[in-house]
Write a protein that binds this DNA or RNA. Structure first.
Lengths: 139, 139
DNA sequence: ATCATTGCAAACACTTTGCATACGC
DNA sequence: GCGTATGCAAAGTGTTTGCAATGAT
């Protein structure tokens, strides 16, 4: 827990218990959660946790560069810890989001058509290998 | 107008006056409009036009592959005619969205980590050349 | 004591749904 | 005439805002 504390302090965020639990959850979860998923999960630990706090925290984390906001369709924002640059694949069938690796050159582009690039996002959509597997079983 | 009619019929969409105007607007506009922007614009021609019709039409166009939905942050969907594959740059300052060209190889990826790719989106965010220009003027 | 963080309720914005009306072949 | 497209109003969903209560130093 101390490491996460340190981490938040370095980023200029004071480490409240709520913020720590949220950060910890982001680190452990594999599922690129929405704000409501985070709330649902952590309110089991902290029953009084409010959605407002989640939204506040996520916006703060986002400003501080701790997380990225993913918006791969669906009209809800999903969050992802900024560990290293990578792309995302979203299965249109089951909704699951996978991290995928692509040519890192794309993330090095800092200027395009005279515009200064600060952030680059790459989203693939389609049908994931699991959903493909299920199709075969049902034959 | 006949060309657009033809185009819709080919895509299996019956060409109502509303749908035609929407398509025409998408073709002429340079600004990757939201549903509400489309509504605002076209209701000057058709004062009784309802938002529902815009949403219905855009969902239909999207299903038929006529348009792509862009979601470059901001929590509103923007629409783009599917002419050729390209990336988008959104200025965080003025909100404007530009089409940009990138290495077309990325759009040719049809399988990644065993997942079948149907659609690929690339979004850059940052500060556009116009906003940079303004900064200089204000010095 | 002061300033930041939390949390509730209400407000918001975008989108979808239900159903009645109008249109086109 | 019948099936589709339209449009209004209401509901739904994810997020933000206003403000009071709480917590930390």
């Amino acid at each position: 827990m101390d490491k996460l504390c340190e981490f938040l302090r370095e980023k200029g965020v004071s480490p409240s218990i709520q913020r720590l639990k949220i950060l910890r959850y982001l680190k452990d979860s594999e599922n690129h959660p929405t704000a409501l998923m985070i709330h649902h999960e952590i309110s089991r630990d902290i029953p009084t946790l409010s959605k407002t706090t989640i939204y506040n925290t996520m916006n703060l984390f986002s400003e501080k560069g701790i997380v990225s906001e993913l918006c791969v369709g669906e009209g809800e924002v999903r969050y992802d810890l900024n560990l290293y640059p990578h792309a995302h694949f979203r299965c249109a069938e089951c909704g699951k989001i996978y991290d995928v690796k692509i040519d890192p050159e794309l993330f090095k582009i800092k200027k395009i058509n005279g515009n200064q690039v600060v952030h680059t996002a790459v989203y693939f959509t389609g049908k994931c290998r699991e959903c493909f597997g299920k199709d075969k079983e049902n034959l």
